[in-house]
């Protein structure tokens, strides 16, 4: 079985996997990081979104072996102890979650947007979420939370450096 070595939430990990093992299986089953969820099998719902080398990807559509030598950040890697990441905090403040199942993917996707386009407006946030499905919130409060979260992330870092906001891996 192939052996894969990578960094997950800042820690070096190695695992023996099958060629067919998906990155999300490595995270959930081998590493016990069950915050990353699986909601579909056609790469659409985005519940499995994680960061690989700083960009959001669908961990259900990537082989674990493809992530060799990469830096992966999951939802578990965001908070600083008991202090939530500003994007997590914004989701709480604006009731951007109900059942919580799509939430990790939404937050990971939103943080990538904040780094990619910190000036995103409501329309751009909605378009960015094309790859993340939520069945509970109607997206209304998720969009509000992300707009607020982006602002909060900018507030925590000098403008332009927000891309390197705490808790992400690149």
């Amino acid at each position: 079985m192939p052996r894969v070595a990578l960094t997950v939430n800042g820690k070096a990990v190695t695992a023996e996997v099958e060629g067919r093992t998906l990155l999300v299986q490595l995270l959930r089953e081998n590493l016990g990081l069950t915050g990353t969820h699986v909601g579909c099998d056609t790469s659409q719902c985005g519940a499995c979104t994680v960061h690989v080398n700083g960009r959001s990807v669908k961990s259900c559509t990537m082989l674990a072996v493809q992530a060799a030598s990469s830096a992966v950040t999951t939802i578990e890697g965001l908070a600083n102890g008991t202090e939530l990441h500003p994007m997590q905090e914004a989701f709480r403040e604006h009731h951007g979650l109900q059942c919580g199942f799509c939430t990790p993917g939404m937050v990971m996707s939103a943080i990538d947007l904040a780094r990619h386009n910190p000036e995103a407006d409501e329309t751009q946030v909605r378009e960015w979420l094309e790859g993340n499905l939520c069945r509970c919130t109607g997206y209304h409060n998720i969009v509000k939370a992300i707009l607020a979260g982006i602002k909060a992330m900018l507030g925590n870092a000098p403008r332009g450096k927000s891309a390197k906001s705490r808790g992400t891996s690149s």
Partner: peptide, 9 residues
């Protein structure tokens, strides 16, 4: 094409 996550890969 696709969505942001698909476009990253």
């Amino acid at each position: 094409i696709g969505d942001p996550q698909v476009r990253h890969r």
